[in-house]
């Protein structure tokens, strides 16, 4: 199984201990009853769906990773099967939403804009990091296997914990810095079209974390900044509005032990980026900049 089994963390143990120490309340009993019912319904639903799918060929089969540390019966990861009626233009996200709204309202995944700009729904589809909302069903082989992003801790079903990713993004001083502004009150800083073009792709990042999930180095070195954060550093380091002294500081950040030199140019991040950002090239360019910069001081 390509999805790593989530660690049974201390948190889960604590929750269990707490539950034991208290006498089961009425609410707990009701919930337990609800769980039993839900299990029963699931089995029944899958059987019905399979029957319907056999009768009607125009459905797609999804195998979706399920896990919930909080719910009996879901603490052991498993795959559930959903049969979804196919419609033209259907995406993996459409199929997941249909499954949730029609069959199982506990099926959990992040999603919001449905148009590849909020970056919420990166997941592992048939063995690759994809944004579910822009992945067409008819381009995938069935059954479609949908899993949470690898190399991140699974919170529940297809939701992973992004705290580490956010920490790395924020570690590169990801904000514009300059020591000089134009004098006029309503005057902008000038930027050449060429320079804007140079940073354009790097500003398209939607923080979906697909690149981080695909990166072998990040998987082995938890402190590695990762492609997205380095790309963010690139976005500012290459922006001519920032000035030389700020650039020095930026190069120091990306040159640190867990910075650009960890990258082994495997291009996996570039391959999975849903916004087509040439991540590996950006990392390479920063390496060159760092070398040039170091030579200058010799």
């Amino acid at each position: 199984m390509s999805t790593q089994i989530p660690k049974q963390t201390e948190k889960a143990d604590e929750t269990a201990a707490e539950t034991e120490s208290e006498a089961p309340s009425k609410g707990d009993e009701r919930r337990a009853e609800k769980r039993r019912r839900a299990d029963e319904q699931r089995r029944q639903r899958e059987a019905e769906e399979a029957e319907r799918a056999a009768a009607d060929e125009n459905t797609v089969e999804l195998r979706v990773f399920r896990y919930d540390p909080d719910v009996e019966g879901k603490q052991e990861p498993r795959f559930d099967t959903f049969h979804v009626p196919f419609t033209k233009g259907m995406t993996v996200l459409d199929a997941l939403m249909y499954s949730r709204d029609t069959y199982d309202s506990s099926l959990t995944f992040r999603h919001s804009c449905r148009q590849a700009v909020c970056g919420s729904d990166a997941m592992f589809v048939n063995g690759g990091q994809k944004l579910a909302c822009k992945t067409q069903i008819d381009e995938l082989e069935e059954p479609i296997r949908v899993e949470p992003l690898p190399h991140a801790e699974v919170t529940k079903d297809l939701v992973v914990d992004l705290e580490h990713f956010y920490d790395q993004m924020e570690a590169v001083e990801p904000y514009f810095q300059t020591n000089e502004y134009p004098d006029g009150e309503l005057e902008e800083q000038r930027q050449t079209r060429e320079n804007r073009e140079k940073i354009k792709m790097s500003t398209r990042c939607i923080w979906c974390s697909a690149c981080m999930s695909s990166c072998n180095i990040a998987a082995g070195d938890n402190e590695y900044l990762g492609p997205a954060a380095i790309n963010k550093a690139y976005r500012f380091a290459m922006d001519e509005r920032e000035g030389e002294d700020v650039k020095q500081k930026r190069l120091e950040i990306i040159e640190q032990e867990h910075g650009v030199w960890r990258c082994q140019t495997q291009f996996s991040c570039t391959e999975v980026c849903p916004k087509d950002i040439p991540l590996t090239e950006h990392i390479q360019e920063l390496k060159r900049e760092a070398v040039k910069n170091n030579l200058k001081f010799w």
Binding site: D70, S105, T155
Partner: peptide, 12 residues
């Protein structure tokens, strides 16, 4: 009613 009994990321 909410059918998912979970305390974790209960989008239902």
């Amino acid at each position: 009613a909410v059918s998912d009994p979970s305390r974790t990321f209960n989008t239902d």
